[in-house]
Design a protein around this nucleic acid. Structure first.
Lengths: 344, 344
DNA sequence: AAGGCTGTAGAATATTTATTTGGTAGGTGC
DNA sequence: GCACCTACCAAATAAATATTCTACAGCCTT
């Protein structure tokens, strides 16, 4: 009682302040409490995310760039955030917020979402998301566990939270994401009906959210620590890897690279990925340019959230034959256009 | 150029302030501008609604009340705002914000929305809405013009803005909403192909947004001024009117009242209203209790946004035979449950 | 080219908000 | 009952933000 009562007060104060635009002192007077309490309640409300402020970038700001990338690579949507700086951390925040806003108003029906909580940007996105009212039933992880236990924990928590925010059931993949050997992979899976189920469910997802990785080992991950080793990375680079999507390595043009590494991954398969009705990626920053180009050129993604510099890179190094565009065009009609939405 | 450039700066500042949580002075230093300018840019961003703060009431706060109303009246969803006061103006604001938030994440596909911009609360809602990404094609007015030209203008502007916000095409009904006589109605319509088209389009709408009116004349409207006269209102009250939805008068239990007034209305018909896939109403306040009860008891609405006191009224005076519930139950399976969506 | 008009900027200042301080009331465990 | 919490207040103050005030740049007008 006392707790819900406190929450009531918090909401009331938040309402008076934000939607009725009253001053804190006036609210204090009206509710017979001190101004300091009003201030604190507002702070509480913020970090209980009862109050959330969104920065909605009006369309058209980058319309040109966006459309050029879209048509060059045959993407259905590109969203460019004009990053606040080149700093990776700050860029990440911007990307995350943009993706969150985007996700928040998907315009199509969604039953199943696959999410790569293993991506730093996507985890950040989940942290800044608001609850959404969807009909989503299941949120499935795209990959098994990677890296040290602390990271695994974070990842699981993010998946959990994402499910909570969408009102869906989380489906975890609590299995090593990279097995030491193909035999081990089979062995692990054979003993884990949950994982088997999860992998099966990845056959039909409406929306998959992925990050895009480079051909280098992530700083959060120790080589070999539940992940590929330095040697394996070296090997895959030799084979021409420019980046990866859900640990499927791609060459510079996005063609998937067949290697023994493929047989070690426990997670969404290439086919499953391509089968997903919508495939959204978020990634940016100079370090990832090549990888991003690979992912979009190969058609592994149909919606991209990135920064202006990356977009420019994509334009400068557009593929001669826009393979994905060809794919898309012959698959079905042609892609839907962006929502205008003006200002009054 | 200069304008879009200014906008860029505005957005950048908004980002730095809101998503990166920097102080104004730091932003000023970083961008080599004065703090006052930062403050002003932020203010600009607010009223260009590039920045919007939402107060999202967590679910469960009123879950009990809501569910009781839902089951007593067979509504698919009831949303209760804990109003900040009983004052009608303040209540209206709260209702409007809540409805806007709700609308912002509809979970179903929407092609056509019918909107009653003639309702004060709905106009307010439109003012506080953010742009939504939907697939909505058309936004149609549910009623012709009412009241003085100034009000007509506001209404048209609201419809226009609503369409812009949803990325849809507005379909206006620029015709008197109440004709002086049935003959005049026919005459007016026969000369107005636009209106005819609009009325036809109301045959299949996915979502209709309505207010709920009482059995008294609205203060914004002069009797007779493009509206019903005092006499007509007296007459319909005699016939037992408790309220109206889109000018269709209902008795205390929501049964529509047949009268000559029906033949004067230019707007969505009863049948069209009932045919709409989703019917959302927003209304509250003591003055409207009876009218709201009528509207929900008669099944004219399937989702209601209201205040706690009204909800309590609805419970206290629940219909003996929950007619709408019966309707709904036999029509199709049973209605979907609310989205939980928890907090991390 | 001078004079007015407008809009924008920064410096200074006023206002608002956040935090600290010191003190009281209620609750809890011992 | 007493020590020891916590939550709150009032008041004071620090910090942050909004709003002056003034200057000046651009641009008509004459």
């Amino acid at each position: 009682m006392t707790d819900i009562d406190g929450q009531r007060l918090m909401i009331k104060v938040a309402r008076l302040y934000h939607t009725h635009e009253m001053r804190q002192t006036d609210i204090a007077k009206r509710l017979q409490i001190s101004q300091s309490r009003v201030s604190r309640l507002l702070a509480q409300a913020e970090d209980a995310s009862i109050v959330r402020t969104v920065v909605a970038v009006p369309q058209h700001v980058h319309a040109e760039l966006e459309e050029r990338v879209e048509s060059l690579y045959g993407l259905s949507e590109v969203h460019i955030v004009d990053a606040v700086s080149d700093d990776e951390a700050e860029l990440g925040k911007d990307l995350a917020h943009t993706m969150a806003a985007l996700l928040h108003d998907v315009a199509f029906e969604v039953n199943t979402i696959a999410v790569t909580s293993w991506s730093k940007t996507l985890r950040l996105m989940i942290d800044v998301m608001l609850p959404m009212r969807t009909r989503c039933k299941h949120v499935i992880e795209t990959l098994g566990d990677l890296g040290p236990p602390a990271l695994q924990h974070d990842t699981a928590r993010s998946t959990q939270q994402f499910a909570a925010l969408t009102g869906a059931q989380p489906v975890f993949l609590r299995t090593p994401g990279v097995a030491p050997s193909p035999e081990m992979k089979e062995l692990l899976l054979s003993r884990d009906p949950h994982a088997q189920k999860a992998l099966e469910m990845l056959d039909s997802v409406d929306l998959v959210l992925v990050g895009i990785g480079t051909d280098e080992i992530d700083t959060d991950l120790r080589p070999g620590d539940n992940f590929f080793t330095d040697e394996q990375f070296a090997r895959i680079r030799e084979l021409g890897a420019a980046g990866e999507v859900c640990l499927h390595f791609l060459d510079a043009d996005g063609t998937p690279i067949d290697s023994e590494l493929e047989d070690l991954i426990v997670g969404i398969s290439r086919e499953q990925l391509k089968n997903a009705r919508h495939r959204w990626a978020v990634a940016g920053g100079a370090r990832k340019h090549r990888a991003i180009r690979a992912a979009v050129a190969g058609g592994w993604v149909d919606t991209l959230v990135t920064d202006g510099a990356t977009a420019q890179f994509l334009i400068d190094y557009a593929p001669a034959a826009p393979q994905a565009a060809v794919d898309a065009a012959q698959a079905k009609g042609t892609s839907r256009r962006r929502t205008p939405a003006a200002k009054g």
